[in-house]
Simulated scan of single mutants.
Amino acid sequence: MNKKKYAILLLGLSIYIFISIGQERKPIEELETINGVGYDLNKSNKAEAEYSLPLSLSIFKADGSRINAVTTERGNNIGEVIQNRQRRLNKKFVQGQETVVLIGEEYARTGIKSIIEDRIRNPETNDRAFMAVCNGKSEEFFNVKNTGYSSASAYMEGLIEAARTFNFYSENFKLYDAYVRIAAEGRSLVLPFLDIKDEGIEMTGLAFFKEDKMVLKLDFEDSKALSFLKYDNVTGMASLQKSSKEYIDFEGKTGKRKVKCYKEGEKYRFTISIKFSGNVINNEMYSNITKDSEVRKKFEKDLEKQLEKECYEFINKMQNQYKMDCIGLGREAAAKFGRRKNIDWNEVVSNAKIDVNVKVAVDTQGRGDY
């Protein structure tokens, strides 16, 4: 054996020994794998609250089959829940495979800092798991049966991941995203909001947080407007419609939004510029759009006006009803005029002048007119 082969063999053996030392190996039939984690609060009165933490588990049988089970433990705090749970489990559970961290609305409105601490401080957990808020108790969602999916957690993971395709939703719904947003100046946490409908689990909007507390639930239309104004490089669909027979659908992607911030006396002014480019996918409204550049330009201008109108409607609601900086303008102002000045950016943005400029560009018209 030459020196090179000997060195490779020695290196491989060393790596194997290093990895193997101190590891406790067990057959998979003796383990329970966590695929979803829930956090609920049960309040009997204003002073006392019981913590309820369901786990969605994958259990592997000796014959190679797999079943999904939900176990729930309760306690006066998260630490007590963990201790109580371990006393009843007859198998060791494996962390790091969980795909969803689901928070009951009551817990979310009380504050999720304890959840962030519980997940981030544990090196075995998956910090790339999706986070979401649910209407009611998370335990109810984990018990929903979804045909074709191994567990409700797998279905919810796919639901959140796919939601950004047509709704301008961000992909920043993971655990580590929450960790960096809840304490950052001028930034806010936004998470998917899930509900159980007749046909199963659905995403019905977004939950908006002030620091670590949920303060708003935004419906589907407001969620799209918020996402369009707040995020860079998101995809979605916009439509113009006069009647059930006259409409046009446009699917595209925004670029990096440009935000300019000015200070006029003691008041702030923001200008948001968004470019939205993509393809016409349905057209029952603009005849000859594929051949006539003037028709195409008219459609672009009409869609720009419609999108700007929707943006201003949301901004008006944001400033006068919610009185919150839902679209992250405080972050831009803090970057320009200085951080840590004890400025309430929610108040600043609620009283600021905000201008929106949308530029639509039609790249293609699909396969053209039929």
Rank of each mutant, 00 (worst) to 15 (best):
S20G: 05
D369M: 09
S170I: 06
S277Q: 02
N283G: 01
V356S: 00
L55S: 02
G104C: 05
D219H: 09
A184Y: 03
S277I: 00
S277W: 00
D63I: 06
Y6M: 14
K145R: 11
K298W: 08
D302Y: 01
R87L: 15
N172R: 15
N122A: 01
S239R: 11
S44C: 08
E264H: 13
L229Y: 10
S14Y: 03
D363F: 10
E98T: 05
M285V: 07
I59E: 07
A334N: 13
L216E: 15
R109A: 04
N76K: 14
K256W: 11
E264I: 15
C326M: 15
Y231C: 07
Y312T: 04
L226F: 12
E185Q: 13
D177C: 00
N35H: 06
R340M: 14
Y179C: 04
S14H: 03
N77R: 02
E264K: 15
K174G: 01
F166D: 11
G36S: 08
E300C: 03
K230G: 00
F220L: 09
R187L: 15
K242M: 06
E264L: 12
M203C: 09
F299A: 01
T147F: 01
M156T: 04
K145W: 05
R128K: 14
S65G: 11
G236Y: 07
N143I: 13
A184Q: 11
T165D: 13
K3I: 09
A132Y: 06
E98F: 06
N77F: 05
E117L: 09
K26H: 13
L240G: 01
S239G: 09
D198T: 14
R87D: 14
M214C: 05
K224P: 08
S273I: 13
S44R: 14
E106V: 12
C311W: 04
N282R: 13
G278Q: 05
Y16F: 13
K213W: 01
S243P: 03
I116Q: 06
I327M: 08
D177E: 01
I28Q: 10
N84S: 07
I248W: 02
G111E: 02
M1A: 08
T147C: 00
C261Q: 10
D219R: 11
V362D: 01
I315H: 05
F299Y: 07
A162M: 01
T290C: 15
E185K: 08
K4Q: 10
F141E: 00
E171M: 07
S170C: 10
V94I: 14
C134M: 00
Y370D: 10
A69C: 09
K61V: 09
G200C: 09
S44K: 15
R257W: 07
I315C: 11
L218N: 03
C311E: 03
E313Q: 13
K145D: 07
P123L: 11
N122P: 00
M1L: 05
V180N: 10
